[in-house]
Design a protein around this nucleic acid. Sequence first.
DNA 1: GTCTATAGGTAGATAGAC
DNA 2: GTCTATCTACCTATAGAC
Lengths: 198, 198
Amino acid sequence: MSTTERLIEATRELLWDRGYVGTSPKAIQRRAGAGQGSMYHHFSGKPALARAAIARTTEELRATAEATLGGSGSGSGSAYDRIAAYLLREREVLRGCPVGRLTMDPDIMADETLRAPVDETLDWLRGRLAEIVQEGLERGEFTAGLDPAEIASTVVATVQGGYVLARASGSPAAFDAGVRGLLALLAPGRDVPNSPRP
Amino acid sequence: MSTTERLIEATRELLWDRGYVGTSPKAIQRRAGAGQGSMYHHFSGKPALARAAIARTTEELRATAEATLGGSGSGSGSAYDRIAAYLLREREVLRGCPVGRLTMDPDIMADETLRAPVDETLDWLRGRLAEIVQEGLERGEFTAGLDPAEIASTVVATVQGGYVLARASGSPAAFDAGVRGLLALLAPGRDVPNSPRP
DNA sequence: GTCTATAGGTAGATAGAC
DNA sequence: GTCTATCTACCTATAGAC
């Protein structure tokens, strides 16, 4: 793996675990096995490193989400099933969301080039979920009258907040509970599938 | 206001806006109008300051939540109404939750004396909401078969995640959308009250 | 109680040799 | 491309005078 590559990956890990404010260039160098001069040769500084790391992490989130939310147009399952698959997929719950956690970082929010990709990613996710809810409404899967954009926001918020509850309690159980509650509300009467966690 | 008091309040503000890692003793002193020596006379260091600040903030959260969730045993409104009041109450949405944001701080999670009050507070909130959902189920307000603890987790997660969405987009609208979606799911057919925000 | 002095360590880079 | 040296500022205290 190239030095550039190792620097980006090290930054991704540190941003995920410690946030932007809690991540120092020195820590990135140590983790990447790169020297000071090497790091500043490849990147102009901490913001540039963070931009590269965030770009990759947001791409990954989109790809992972799309993998459960359903293929390219082929209706592979009901809307409920696709949303359930998204909610119940395996996650490193106790680590939190690598994108969502950035919103609590004041220095990220203050820099438009760092905030924008975070905003666009969560916005894309809400839009994608809203499309699926709309499909479900048209097929009569959900209670008529629900607002697709609102339900999409509720779904994403439940996931983001589930991370908070899980981290506070030190256990993924709280995340799972929130998700199961949401699925029960979405489809009254249906059996909620089990989470992948033991 | 005493120096101790000003130090605690300054720490609360900074923890809320910048987190634990992003808050320095010097910044606290500046905001409190206290000198270095003065601060270290009243508190042993940053962790002690944070303990005092978190204790006060969690007390405040409990009091504020209890104010909307309903009085001491007197059923002042339906379960749905009390949950709606909690969800729709005025909040400084773009600032995030002063308790929930602490869960993303690695240094807070690593120190048991700082993590415990956060955990206990969110746990209390979930328990309190579960009681109310239980009441609502007994009165037939909600779809039979719902799990009170799960729904309570969904409610708290939606709030915590709503803050994330709002901060990402720079607008409280995303918070409100998530809340309105949740209320619509909780009581199909009912009109969801408007949020207090303009 | 509050102030100033001191101190070792890190943050976030820049400069220039190799 | 990578390394070492250097730099200013800030972090998180401790010590001791007033």
